[in-house]
Simulated assay, not measured.
Amino acid sequence: MRGSSLCAVAALAFAVPLAVAAPVSAEQGETDHREARPYDAQRAAFADVASALARAAISRKRVILVMGANWCHDSRGLAGWFATPRFADMLERRYEIVYVDVGHPQEGEGRNIDIAQRFGIEEISGTPTVLILSPEGTLLNAETAPTWRNAASRTGDEIFDYFASFE
């Protein structure tokens, strides 16, 4: 029975398409990367998160939940960095990445906030809010998760080093 349960989890993990690091569309930014627009309000965010966690449990990778929106310059900027070859190579080896559209939580029009709450982040006060989860789903960066609202003004090296530091 245990073997069939693991197979069922594995099948679910690969059956649900995931919002990936590649941009849906991009525009040239004022830095040395492009902005990306990977946030999709129509996606089944809970299913995307469950799928990423199931894959992480098998692959032993960590999970990055980027809770942002396409209207947000910093959300687009971070996604743009993630789509560069340097980042994509490192991130693909270490992480499952999920982009979760949160709407406009600062204006009381948020969505998917319950996903952040599931991992101990009670509110989204700025976008993006970036959660790093262990393969078991434990939040690893509670103190720094809400600090990414200035992502577009951070250097590529600073961002790269932050995500590379989670072994």
Rank of each mutant, 00 (worst) to 15 (best):
G29A: 14
G29K: 04
E30Y: 11
E30H: 11
E30C: 05
D32M: 03
D32P: 03
H33W: 10
R34M: 05
R34E: 08
R34V: 06
E35K: 06
E35W: 06
E35Q: 02
A36W: 05
Y39V: 12
Y39K: 01
Y39W: 15
Y39E: 04
D40H: 15
D40I: 09
D40R: 02
D40C: 05
A41I: 14
A41L: 11
A41P: 09
Q42V: 07
A44N: 15
F46L: 13
A47W: 08
D48C: 07
V49E: 08
A50K: 11
S51G: 05
S51T: 05
S51P: 04
S51V: 02
A52H: 04
A52P: 13
A54S: 14
A56W: 00
A57V: 05
S59T: 14
S59L: 08
S59W: 01
R60L: 13
K61Q: 12
V63P: 02
I64C: 01
I64W: 05
L65I: 12
M67F: 13
N70V: 14
N70Y: 14
W71D: 10
H73M: 13
H73F: 09
H73S: 11
S75L: 02
S75D: 11
R76W: 09
L78N: 00
T84Y: 06
P85K: 04
P85T: 07
R86A: 12
F87E: 04
A88H: 12
A88D: 14
D89P: 02
M90K: 02
M90I: 12
L91C: 05
L91P: 10
E92H: 09
R93H: 14
Y95G: 03
